[in-house]
């Protein structure tokens, strides 16, 4: 957790045409994100969580307001991890991981070394020659995390990356993400539906309302130190978050 702000969204408005009507997803929305935080964006389906991520990634344009990065070139140095179709199916795992390095024209031998090292750190060393369809869902997400991290991004944008996984694999990958985050402290924005996941992973949890999205809760659950206090906070948060879901259902 860090107090230095790295991303500022000031009074932004944004939306998109879904083919039938124009949906105003954000209207006069402001948010500041700190450096090195693992920020969780939580909210009901269709509230604009993914749109927020895409705005920060530069994929969805703003209709109004300001998006400011406090570090130069941060937007270009951000990496996305999706829930589905997150690896190129025509490349094997190591070539998928090498993709970003190849674009950066990193020499072949060095590229291979870096990719191997990264695959090793996510536990996929023996699967480098496999194609994505030959791996389980959890392994594919490990590979896509490796693909995103190998280029040493300044910002990691994760759009429900563990949403399609079973509970056990999900927990394994949550642990992996925590381990990676505590090691290299990359500023991360993580979209999820799961309150448990938010509580487990987040340095900061931002709960959004339905469209046009507003911030309903902005919590830092890991600020509490003792185990008992933490547990009490977990219960309280769970109750609060559930209530928010029920109100906005």
């Amino acid at each position: 957790m860090n107090n230095q702000n790295i991303i500022e969204l000031k009074n932004i408005s944004a939306g998109f045409d879904n083919g039938k009507q124009y949906l105003q997803v954000f209207d006069d929305f402001s948010l500041t994100l700190g450096k090195g935080d693992l920020n969780i964006i939580l909210g009901p389906t269709g509230c604009g969580k993914s749109t927020l991520l895409n705005i920060i990634a530069g994929i969805v344009p703003l209709q109004g307001g300001i998006l400011e990065f406090k570090e130069p070139n941060l937007q270009n140095n951000s990496r996305l991890v999706f829930q589905h179709y997150t690896l190129f199916p025509w490349l094997n795992i190591i070539k998928n991981v090498e993709f970003g390095l190849k674009i950066r024209k990193i020499e072949k031998i060095r590229r291979r070394e870096m990719a191997e090292e990264m695959l090793n750190s996510v536990g996929l060393a023996s699967f480098e020659k496999h194609f994505p369809h030959e791996l389980s869902g959890g392994m594919r997400q490990r590979a896509s995390i490796a693909q995103a991290l190998v280029t040493e991004p300044g910002l990691l944008l994760m759009d429900e990356p563990f949403g399609a996984l079973d509970d056990f694999t999900r927990m394994e990958l949550q642990d992996l993400l925590q381990k990676i985050h505590s090691k290299n402290n990359i500023t991360t924005i993580f979209i999820t539906h799961s309150i448990d996941e938010a509580i487990k992973l987040g340095d900061r949890i931002i709960l959004l309302s339905k469209q046009p999205a507003k911030i309903l809760e902005d919590i830092r659950p890991t600020e509490q130190q003792t185990a008992n206090e933490k547990e009490a906070l977990y219960s309280k948060l769970r109750q609060q978050l559930h209530q928010q879901f029920l109100i906005h259902k």
Binding site: A57, R79, L80, H84, T86, F88, F99, I103, Q147
Partner: peptide, 20 residues
């Protein structure tokens, strides 16, 4: 998704055409 993935990994238009 494949195009977005390539672009966020730093691919320019030419790379997207030939590699995606």
């Amino acid at each position: 998704n494949y195009i977005t993935l390539a672009e966020t990994l730093g691919a320019d238009k030419k790379t997207v055409v030939f590699r995606v």
